[in-house]
């Protein structure tokens, strides 16, 4: 993953729990990197180790960590660093979600070495939509759910995110139903 992801985790911890906690988490994770370069790809394992260390240090589940991180990714990282891009994504939640596949495919322009997941949107209703999540990576459902929650929050929309299909049950990909 690109360094921006790990940096986002670092920012999340530092801002909420302070520098010392981040140092403790880094020591616990065994990741000896003092500075993540956003546009530099890092091994996925670094991200997983950091997530696990946060979970252990904060005594919360990895799922919760990823969910919080998903929200943080949308509400802080994306908005602060790619605010214009995000704003161009749509003027409301539905619009953004419908544009999400195109939006995401354009991110590839920013990170050409990215192995990005692919989103598809189907069953577009007035107050709900199905978001299909295809990825080679496993175990990041909660991160995606957090992203969707963060998107809803960013558009001040109270939404319910449901995981209606998952690879854990033998399906080919995850499907989230976003209702508001």
């Amino acid at each position: 993953m690109y360094g921006i992801v790990n940096k986002a985790i670092e920012d999340l911890v530092k801002e909420n729990f302070g520098e010392e906690k981040w140092e403790a988490i880094k020591i616990r994770s065994g990741v000896d990197v003092d500075f993540f370069i956003s546009s530099e790809p890092y091994d996925d394992d670094v991200t997983y180790k950091l997530a696990q260390a946060v979970s252990d240090e904060m005594n919360i589940s990895v799922g919760s960590v990823l969910h919080v991180f998903g929200e943080w990714w949308v509400l802080r990282t994306s908005k602060e660093k790619y605010g214009g891009l995000m704003a161009a994504g749509g003027s409301n939640l539905l619009e953004f979600l419908v544009n999400l596949p195109v939006f995401h495919n354009r991110v590839m322009l920013i990170y050409p070495k990215l192995t990005p997941p692919e989103f598809k949107v189907t069953d577009v209703e007035e107050r709900s939509v199905l978001v299909h999540y295809h990825s080679k990576r496993v175990g990041l459902q909660d991160f995606v759910k957090g992203i969707l929650t963060g998107l809803a929050k960013s558009y001040q929309t109270e939404a319910v995110i449901e995981l209606v299909q998952t690879r854990d049950n033998g399906s080919s990909h995850e499907i989230f139903k976003v209702s508001w």
Binding site: D34, F35, I37, S39, E40
Partner: peptide, 23 residues
């Protein structure tokens, strides 16, 4: 864009050196 990427890559390389030096 490739020129920009190349520049970014050069910058990243230098940044890596800086980070390595700092480290």
């Amino acid at each position: 864009l490739l020129h920009v990427l190349k520049n970014q890559e050069i910058t990243n390389g230098e940044l890596r050196q800086v980070v390595a030096t700092v480290n």
